[in-house]
Design a binder for these strands. Structure first.
Length: 331
DNA sequence: GAGACATCGCATATAG
DNA sequence: CTATATGCGT
DNA sequence: GTCTC
């Protein structure tokens, strides 16, 4: 057996981290979500470069990199630092706000409120705050409770074990039920940040309580689901744990009618880049594609009825694209 | 130079 | 109570 | 912040 070697890391990972840090500041502190997305887009362009960036000419013209970001990269190449980033880091209030947003359910708005109005400057202070329960809603309280656990990636093997249990128990409830774990797990990832489950049933329209029953069973019978963040007729968001020796994990369960199942399967398997690509191809070919359906776009912009789809392959076929296996969808 | 930058389900706050 | 707006995560 | 119109 050959020596086990750490997977080669991206040669520009430091620069990418810097851009992500600039992105986070814009989202959480400045509350400029589009600047956040702009920095993320630039970072993902750079992530595609497989050699170490030596000069600004290596990145000039890259998608999502304009004058301002190019200038920052230039600074980074010549000095190893980015002024704007150093300034951000010197902003203690901003740093505190960023910390607050680590908690699930605390977004930019609430994070700013906690820091500016309540003068909370760290997660520890939030945890020990006398009015903690009044300052946080239920989701945020769960987020705080499980903060460190949710920041750990889930090994593929653990998801595999969950899959065995989930599929067995869901089918046992009703053998017409069909379920799959999607997301990066389905694409073959060795670790994932959460578990995303898709469920379908031929008579789902007549079973508005289906999701509630599934969740109730997984909670009460098997103690697999430990907490509910939110639940409606079509989407559950919550927390699960395979056994008490393992960490708590974020899990989402979505229910779709059969005719929408494969569009949903494609969409929630991703990745994001493939989804965007396929939406554009669809548009070019006169279709509209989303997580629910694929429809023909008429000359006046009118939409046809959803086209019949009985497999993911059907969608690739409509778009005249070569079928991609899930593990080939990491773009 | 102005406007777009995805969309939507659920929880919660607010208005009526 | 119902209708609508906002925040959040996706 | 970047891109398109």
């Amino acid at each position: 057996m050959a020596a086990k070697r750490k997977l080669a890391e991206n040669p520009n990972s430091e620069l990418i981290d810097f851009l992500h840090e600039l992105a986070d500041y814009e989202k959480n502190v400045s509350r400029m979500i589009h600047k956040y997305n702009a920095y993320r887009k630039a970072a993902s362009s750079i992530a595609k470069i497989d050699h170490k960036i030596q000069s600004i000419t290596d990145i000039k013209g890259l998608e999502g990199i304009g004058k301002k970001i190019a200038a920052k990269i230039e600074q980074y190449l010549s000095t190893g630092k980015i002024k704007k980033l150093e300034t951000n880091r010197g902003d203690e209030t901003g740093a505190a706000i960023n910390q607050m947003t680590r908690v699930m359910g605390i977004g930019p708005t609430h994070a700013n409120k906690l820091v500016h109005q309540e003068k909370i400057t760290s997660i520890d202070e939030l945890r020990s705050h006398p009015k903690r329960d009044q300052l946080l809603n239920k989701t945020q309280q769960l987020g705080l409770k499980y903060l460190e656990e949710f920041e750990q990636k889930i090994p593929r093997d653990e998801i595999k074990q969950m899959e065995t249990i989930l599929l067995r128990e869901i089918t046992a409830m009703d053998n017409l039920l069909r379920a799959e774990i999607v997301g990066s797990y389905r694409r073959g990832a060795t670790a994932s940040s959460d578990i995303d489950v898709l469920v379908t049933h031929p008579a789902v329209a007549k079973l508005p309580s289906l999701l509630h029953k599934i969740v109730e069973t997984l909670t009460k019978q098997f103690h697999f689901i430990t907490d509910t963040i939110s639940i409606g007729d079509s989407k559950f968001m919550g927390v699960c744990q395979i056994d008490t020796s393992k960490l708590h994990r974020r899990i989402d369960i979505r229910v779709f009618p059969s005719e929408q199942y494969y569009c949903a399967l494609l969409y929630f398997t991703g990745n994001d880049q493939l989804n965007r690509h396929m939406r554009i191809v669809a548009q070019e070919q006169g279709y509209k594609l989303n997580e629910y359906s694929i429809q023909k776009v008429g000359s006046t912009g009118t939409l046809s009825k959803p086209l019949p789809v009985t497999s993911e392959r059907d969608i690739f076929d409509y778009l005249q694209m070569d079928y991609k296996e899930p593990h080939e969808r990491n773009m």
